[in-house]
């Protein structure tokens, strides 16, 4: 990479980091390059600098930034992925809240929800745990930066890849099959709301001290330091006192100044907001 390309690369990655909080270095740089290359060809942009100027100034830049969000964020997800966190919600987070949940819904924030597989898996888990029978309702606010993925989540129609760990019986029980795709049955979509949100520049839809738990798995690993701290601060504000933050297995708040304390549950570590923290 020559000096012009290096500088152009920095312009684009700085813009991505400012806008989406995502850091692209090391091997992730190659991933970004491979994703951008076809897009540059499509737009007939001869260099990263030209593409950067397109993102900065072109009248269609907002649409392109939305498209970029889908290109650069990881949409790797599927139904019933790492279900132990759902168990934590049902067995540890929910029981002490039962008295108050007679008056209000169990509120979960699903951050970086992609096309909804995780949020809907939670619904199925709650239904199978008999929450409806116990008169408990829930609201799962699912947020993602990509409008395209949010639209897919609202449609709730999935490719077989999203059901890769579902056995035939599970597929039949929760989905209707048509022309090689699977539609999640309507009753399993209950309580899920989708929001197109850039968590690095939130538009206020997260709310203040609203949620009992935040699920944010395998998203923070792609964030630069500033974006990481900002998003953790946002989760801290959005959770009720004593609320839980559930991160992916490779993510940690170790050595960071946050309002959370680590708690060992079900053989894993989750984070709990202190009662007095803001």
């Amino acid at each position: 990479m020559n000096s012009v390309e290096t500088a152009d690369w920095k312009l684009v990655t700085d813009l991505i980091q400012d806008r989406f909080g995502l850091a692209f270095d090391g091997v992730r740089r190659e991933i970004l390059e491979s994703r951008l290359r076809p897009r540059l060809r499509e737009l007939r942009q001869g260099s990263l600098r030209e593409y950067y100027l397109y993102l900065r100034f072109h009248p269609e830049r907002e649409a392109e930034l939305n498209r970029l969000a889908s290109l650069i964020t990881n949409n790797e997800t599927y139904f019933f992925r790492e279900t132990n966190h759902f168990e934590v919600l049902v067995k540890h987070v929910l029981p002490p809240l039962r008295p108050s949940l007679r008056e209000r819904p169990f509120k979960i924030l699903c951050a970086g929800c992609s096309s909804g597989e995780e949020a809907y898996s939670m619904v199925i888990t709650f239904q199978n745990a008999g929450l409806e029978m116990a008169g408990i309702t829930w609201e799962i606010d699912a947020h993602d930066v990509s409008p395209e993925r949010i639209a897919r989540g609202r449609q709730a129609v999935y490719d077989p890849n999203s059901l890769r760990v579902c056995d035939p019986e599970t597929r039949q029980r929760y989905f209707t099959h048509s022309e090689g795709r699977y539609r999640l049955k309507e009753r399993h979509q209950k309580g899920v709301r989708f929001f197109e949100t850039n968590l690095v520049a939130p538009n206020g839809t997260l709310g203040w001290a609203l949620f009992d738990a935040v699920l944010c798995r395998n998203m923070l690993i792609y964030f630069g330091d500033a974006a990481f701290d900002s998003v953790i601060g946002l989760f801290g504000r959005s959770l009720r006192p004593g609320g839980y933050l559930l991160l992916g297995h490779s993510e940690s708040l170790l050595n960071r100044d946050t309002p959370f304390i680590p708690v060992s549950v079900e053989g894993g570590v989750v984070y709990r907001k202190g009662p007095a923290a803001s």
Partner: peptide, 11 residues
């Protein structure tokens, strides 16, 4: 021009 065309003119 607006900045997107100004940038193109410079290039």
């Amino acid at each position: 021009c607006g900045p997107h065309e100004q940038a193109e003119i410079l290039l």
